[in-house]
Deep mutational scan, measured.
Amino acid sequence: VFVDDHLLEKVLELNAKGEKRLIKTWSRRSTIVPEMVGHTIAVYNGKQHVPVYITENMVGHKLGEFAP
C-alpha cells in the first residue's frame, strides 16, 4: 500500500496529539489507511483543495477518487 511519507507523518502526528484539523495535500495517489479515519483531508483536484472527510468505508481507496 502506498502513502506519501509527508502525509502519513502529518496524520500520525495529529493522532498522537489527539487533534483533528484540516490537512492539505497534493498527493491524490496516496491510499487511504485506517490511521486517517476521522480526519478531514483537503485533496487538490488541479484547481482547488476539496475537503474530504475520511470514513471507514474509504480505507483501501485512493484520495484522488474522492476529489473529482
Rank of each mutant, 00 (worst) to 15 (best):
Met58Gly: 04
Glu19Pro: 02
Asp4Lys: 02
Val37Lys: 13
Asn45Cys: 06
Thr31Gly: 13
Glu19His: 06
Lys47Asn: 11
His39Gly: 01
Thr25Val: 01
Val33Pro: 03
Asn15Gly: 02
Asn45Val: 05
Val11Arg: 00
Ile32Cys: 08
Leu63Trp: 00
Arg28Phe: 05
Lys20His: 11
Pro51Asn: 10
Arg21Ala: 15
Lys17His: 08
Ala67Met: 04
Lys20Leu: 09
Ala16Asp: 06
Lys47Ser: 10
Leu8Arg: 05
Asp5Glu: 15
Ile41Gly: 01
Glu13Gln: 12
Trp26Gly: 11
Ile41Gln: 00
Pro34Gln: 11
Phe2His: 09
Asn45Pro: 02
Glu13Arg: 08
Gln48Phe: 13
Tyr44Gln: 03
Leu63Tyr: 01
Glu56Thr: 12
Ile23Ala: 01
Glu65Gln: 11
His61Thr: 10
Ser27Val: 07
Gly38Met: 08
Thr55Cys: 11
Ile54Gln: 00
Gln48His: 14
Val43Met: 02
Glu19Leu: 11
Lys17Thr: 12
Met36Gly: 00
Asn57Phe: 14
Ala16Glu: 09
Leu22Phe: 05
Arg28Ser: 07
Lys10Asn: 10
Asn45Thr: 10
Gly18Val: 02
Val1Pro: 15
Pro51Lys: 10
Glu9His: 14
Leu22Trp: 09
Glu35Met: 11
Thr31Val: 10
Val33Asp: 03
Glu19Ala: 06
Asp5Ile: 15
Asp4Glu: 12
Val50Thr: 10
His49Met: 08
Val37Asn: 10
Ile54Asp: 00
Trp26Arg: 13
Pro34Val: 15
Val11Thr: 02
Thr25Ala: 02
Thr31Pro: 03
Glu65Lys: 10
Ala42Asp: 05
Asn45His: 06
Lys10Tyr: 11
His39Tyr: 03
Pro68Ser: 08
Gly18Leu: 05
Val3Ser: 02
Gly18Ile: 02
Asp4His: 05
Arg28Leu: 05
Pro68Thr: 11
Glu35Cys: 11
His49Gly: 05
Met58Tyr: 12
Phe66Gly: 03
Gly46Ser: 08
Pro68Phe: 09
Asn57Val: 15
Thr40Ser: 09
Ile41Met: 05
Arg28Thr: 07
Met36Thr: 02
Ile32Met: 05
Lys20Ile: 06
Ser30Gly: 03
Gly64Glu: 12
Val3Ile: 11
Gly38Tyr: 08
Thr55Tyr: 12
Phe66Leu: 09
Ile41Ser: 00
Phe2Cys: 12
Lys10Glu: 15
Asp4Phe: 02
Lys17Tyr: 06
Lys47Ala: 13
Asn57Lys: 13
Asn45Ile: 05
Arg28Asn: 05
Val3Gly: 03
Asn15Leu: 03
Gly18Asn: 08
Glu13His: 08
Phe66Ser: 05
Gly46Tyr: 11
His6Gly: 08
Glu13Pro: 00
Val11His: 00
His49Thr: 02
Arg29Asp: 09
Val37Leu: 13
Glu19Trp: 06
Phe2Arg: 04
Gly60Lys: 08
Glu35Arg: 04
His61Asn: 11
Gly38Ile: 01
Ile23Cys: 02
Ile54Met: 10
Val33Ile: 15
Ile32Tyr: 00
Lys17Val: 08
Glu65Met: 09
His49Ala: 03
Lys10Asp: 06
Gln48Cys: 12
Thr55Trp: 11
Lys10Arg: 14
Val33Asn: 04
Ile23Thr: 02
Pro68Val: 10
Ala42Cys: 05
Lys10Gly: 04
Ser27Tyr: 04
Met36Ile: 02
Asn15His: 02
Lys62Glu: 14
His39Ser: 01
Arg29Glu: 08
Asn15Gln: 03
Gly46Gln: 07
Thr31Leu: 05
Ile54Arg: 00
Val52Ile: 13
Tyr53Trp: 08
Glu13Val: 07
Lys62Phe: 09
Glu65Trp: 08
Glu13Met: 08
Tyr53Gly: 14
Phe2Tyr: 13
Leu7Asp: 01
Leu7Gly: 00
Lys10Ile: 14
Lys24Thr: 10
Leu7Ile: 04
His49Tyr: 15
Thr31Glu: 10
Met58Ala: 08
Val43Gly: 01
Val52Met: 06
Asp5Met: 15
Lys20Glu: 03
Arg28Met: 04
Val43Ser: 02
Ile41Val: 06
